[in-house]
Nucleic acid binder design. Sequence first.
DNA 1: CGGTTTTGACCAGCGC
DNA 2: GCGCTGGTCAAAACCG
Length: 311
Amino acid sequence: MDDNDKVDPIAGGFSSDSTWTFPGDYTFFGTDGRETAVLNDFGWNFNPLPPVLDRSGSDAVGSSASLPEVGAGAAAAAVAGEVRSGSVDEAGDVSMSSNPVVSSSSSEDRVESSTAVSGGKPPSSDRVGKVKRKGPKRIRQPRFAFMTKSEIDHLEDGYRWRKYGQKAVKNSPFPRSYYRCTNNKCTVKKRVERSSEDPTTVITTYEGQHCHHSIGFPRGLVPYHDQLQGASYATRQLPPNLLTLMNPGVNINNNYSRPPFHDHMIGSSLQPQPSNALIGDHHLAQPSSSQDSHKDQGLLGDIVSPTMRNQ
DNA sequence: CGGTTTTGACCAGCGC
DNA sequence: GCGCTGGTCAAAACCG
Ligand SMILES: [Zn+2]
């Protein structure tokens, strides 16, 4: 009933400015490609050409599979927008910021210590007792949040999503939508919500990696935008050696997937596991310049500053 | 007719 | 121990 009725202590969160900071210590390493690695690990290939893949021990998602690394993602990102520096914390948090011009950093994090593990339907008499409580606990995969400036809540990223829930966010008049990949075997989930202070900013949080190639996508930062109108991108994806997937034994040759860069990406963040309560989605934002000439229509745009957290 | 969205209810973790 | 919040499911409604 009353979801956003009462403001909780987290009030300082989003309502501070348009900038966010990281709670822990992050290591800045400029565009070394770490953030890219994370992106790649996530399945977002900014760069189709992987000349640099020499990551042996993937430490990104230490779950049960080695993530592939494409490397060079930063470059692509830079091309797409202006990714400049990235920060990674010991836990593996990677954050990228592009413009230091940000107004200031307000320490904030999305409080998400809770693990959202299960919680769906109860076998009660009313509801068909069908609670598929599969494992005792659900493993939360790293989350990758993208901040995009768009009026559209649902940005097309080339994948088909099915909305499975919507909840009101505390502190925000805007509700949060929960989407899940329509693929049967794909467990990727997506959360879309609007910033409470900046209704123009949409925060899309991806969780998990797709085990299948995306189907067609708008137009975004494709390195070879010369011919990506038809199925070119599909053909020119990255070599099979960089794509691996998070599933053991499953090797996808091409997973050209990219985040939903719509008009203007402000920031993104990736979170691996919530060990502490300070882990949440941190997004860096701040456009500085920018003339938004194009309007948001669901396509890739300029990335301002992506942030990711990965363990 | 199928798929998707909508909406309410419910669960599990965490806080207090 | 209770309450809160976030997260999920499932039935119905909606749409093509
Ligand atoms: Zn998928």
